[in-house]
């Protein structure tokens, strides 16, 4: 059993190790970045990315994938920049209905046995189109309460760090500590066993997707709060980023193996590696995206290597 613990530990610590490495590199290159102000600037966009990554994590828990989270975040930001400001009740209603649509999709996917990659691919067009309809030209403004929230000057730790901690704790609690979280994770590990024990699979799937929708809404609002205005494409890159972050954080596509804390760490790592680290390394911004790819490859290859090593012993 001790043997398992060490392999499992190594594997679980990979995301944290990558984050530490990136932080160490930043500290070495530009010590002044390791400061309250430095982190606030570097992690400017962290909160929306973390929320989107957690949303994706919920979907991956059930062995699915959400290719529409990016455009959904854009849509939410657009709604927030328009209706939420002009007519708050309508805005809230629209966002609530959107979460309902996500739940409905989850139910449909389970009931009809549909491939989530195709359904969410179609929905990405829908959300994108809706975003364009809501906000044809970049603009709008963020509601005051949102602006105040995202600009909180928290003591000791910068706001993005505090917010990420809170998100990590909440997600961890829901998925890993509650009794229903266990059942939800079970659907990814052995759906047949869950069904045999009498649980209704379509309802569970709807729940996972509803959670994704909820965190998607939070992500869109957070993004609006940070950028103060919106456009229909603002969140589109979050689809691939969220997948990368969730997998980097220890999640796997099959088996119901997810780590909420890991997902948050993964998102933070990607946020830091994307711009700040490379800027300090004097690597041209052209390579920002590529760095994310390389990090993903290295971490996943390491994970596979550790897994094979364990199998051999």
């Amino acid at each position: 059993m001790g043997r398992f613990l060490s392999v499992r530990l190594l594997r679980d610590l990979l995301p944290a190790l990558s984050l530490v490495l990136v932080l160490a590199a930043i500290a070495w290159l530009n010590p002044r970045a390791i400061s309250y102000l430095g982190f606030t600037l570097m992690l400017n966009l962290a909160v929306p990315i973390v929320l989107a990554t957690v949303a994706q994590m919920f979907v991956i828990t059930g062995n699915d994938l959400d290719l529409s989270i990016g455009p959904f975040v854009s849509f939410v930001a657009c709604v927030g920049a328009t209706w939420l400001v002009e007519n708050p009740l309508v805005g809230i209603l629209v966002l609530a209905v959107s979460i309902g649509i996500y739940a409905l999709l989850g139910w449909l996917i389970q009931w009809r046995g549909l491939p989530s990659i195709v359904v969410t691919l179609g929905m990405s067009f829908v959300w994108q189109g809706l975003a364009v309809l809501v906000l044809p030209k970049p603009g709008g403004s963020a509601p005051d309460w949102l602006l105040s929230l995202m600009n909180v000057k928290s003591p000791v730790l910068p706001f993005p760090v505090v917010a990420s901690l809170v998100i990590a704790i909440v997600a961890w609690f829901i998925v890993m500590r509650t009794s229903y979280g266990a059942v939800l994770r079970g659907t990814g590990g052995n759906a047949a066993a869950i069904a045999r024990a009498g649980w209704p699979l379509p309802v569970l799937k709807a729940g996972l997707f509803a959670a994704a929708g909820l965190f998607g809404v939070l992500s869109g609002l957070a993004l609006l709060g940070v950028t103060t205005s919106a456009d229909a494409n603002v969140g589109n890159g979050y689809t691939l980023l969220s997948i990368a972050g969730a997998i980097l954080g220890g999640g796997e596509f099959v088996g119901g193996i997810v780590s909420p804390v890991g997902a948050v760490i993964g998102a933070l790592t990607l946020t830091l590696a994307a711009s700040p680290l490379l800027t300090f390394l004097d690597i041209p911004p052209d390579w920002q995206v590529g760095a994310n790819g390389i990090i993903l490859i290295v971490v996943l290859a390491a994970r596979t290597r550790i897994g094979r090593q364990a199998a051999r012993t």
Binding site: S179, G189, A193, A197, W199
Partner: peptide
Amino acid sequence: LSLCPNLTVAENTRIYHSALRGFGWR
């Protein structure tokens, strides 16, 4: 076997009994 490999033994027991919920279920 009807166990979920990604869950703990206790969590698998919870799956079996819907009554094991609420505060302190674990």
